[in-house]
Design a protein around this nucleic acid. Structure first.
Lengths: 140, 140
DNA sequence: CCTTGACCTTCCGGTAACTGGAAGCTCCAC
DNA sequence: GTGGAGCTTCCAGTTACCGGAAGGTCAAGG
C-alpha cells in the first residue's frame, strides 16, 4: 500500500513514516515501479507498535530497542520489563521536577496581588536569585 | 568582567552566555580593547534572573517577556501573574500527561513476569495497538 | 487526448536551547 | 619566551519531527 494508506492505518503522519525510513527504524518492504514506497501489513503493525510506544513517552531509541525485542523470539520478558521500569523511573523523576517548579511558582503567584501596580513578589524572587546559595541548598 | 567570571557569578555556562547574546536576550554592556566581552554587575543580575526563570521551566521566550516586565517600571503585577499562572497550567497539563503514561506503563509492568521467558504483556500491548479505537476513546 | 487534482518523490530549512569542538588570538606568570 | 588558561568566531550535532518547494504519477472527467 502507498504511504498515505499506511499513515492512515498506523495513525502517524506520512512525514513521520518517511522520517522513520530515513533513520532506519521502519523501512517499507519495497518500492513500486513508480518509486512509491510500498508498505505491507506487517510494516503497518510495526508502525502501530512504534506509535503506541511513542505515546507512552519512549524515545525513538527506546522504540528501536523494544522493536528489536518484539522481533526477537529469543528475548526474555525481563529485558522488556527493565526498559519499562526505566521509563517509569524517568517519568517519576520528571514529575517530581515539575511538582517542585509548580510548588515554587504557586507560592509566588499566591503572594502576587495581580493588580495594576508594578510591585510583584514573582519578579522580586527572580531578581533575588543567588546561584551560590541555591547550590548549597542542593548539596544539603 | 570577563565571560568566565560572569558565568561563575550567574551559575550559567559561558557557552550559554554567548548564546544569550546571539539571540539578543542579554547582551553584555561592552567589549574590551581585546575583543573580550565585558559584563557589568547589572548584566550578571539579569543573567541570574534568567537562570532562575529557566529553572522554573519558563521558555527563553517567556524569560524575555519576564525580563522586559522586570525592566519596565510601568508594568502591572497582573501581567506578571498571568504569565506565572499560564506556566502553572502548562506544568499541570504536562504532569497529567506523565501520570497517564506512568499509570499505563505501571499496569503493564505489573502484569509482566520479568523472567527468562519471551512472553510479555508489555510487548503484546504495544503490538495490539489500534489507532482507530484509540481515537474513539479520545472522542468519548 | 488533455487537463485537473490528489498523491507521491526528494531535498532543504527550521524548530528549542543549547553543547562540543576546531582554529586561532590574548594574557599572565614563571 | 614559553606554557597554559581563557578568550574569540564559526560550524556541526542533538531530538523528533514539520513545512514547503519543485517536480513526477495516476485516475477520472470532459
Amino acid at each position: 500500500m502507498n504511504i498515505g494508506e499506511a499513515a492512515r492505518r498506523s495513525g502517524l503522519p506520512a512525514k513521520t513514516l518517511r522520517y522513520y525510513e530515513d533513520i532506519g527504524l521502519i523501512v517499507p518492504s519495497g518500492r513500486k515501479h513508480n518509486g512509491y514506497r510500498d508498505y505491507s501489513d506487517r510494516d503497518v503493525r510495526l508502525l502501530r507498535f512504534v506509535q503506541r510506544a511513542r505515546s507512552l513517552g519512549f524515545s525513538v531509541r527506546q522504540c528501536r530497542e523494544l522493536l528489536d525485542l518484539y522481533l526477537d523470539h529469543g528475548r526474555t520478558s525481563a529485558d522488556v520489563k527493565r526498559i519499562a521500569l526505566e521509563r517509569i523511573a524517568e517519568i517519576e523523576r520528571k514529575i517530581r521536577e515539575l511538582e517542585t517548579m509548580k510548588a515554587e511558582l504557586a507560592h509566588l503567584a499566591e503572594k502576587c496581588h495581580g493588580d495594576e501596580r508594578p510591585d510583584c513578589p514573582i519578579l522580586e524572587d527572580l531578581a533575588a536569585f543567588d546561584p551560590a546559595a541555591a547550590e548549597e541548598r542542593e548539596l544539603v
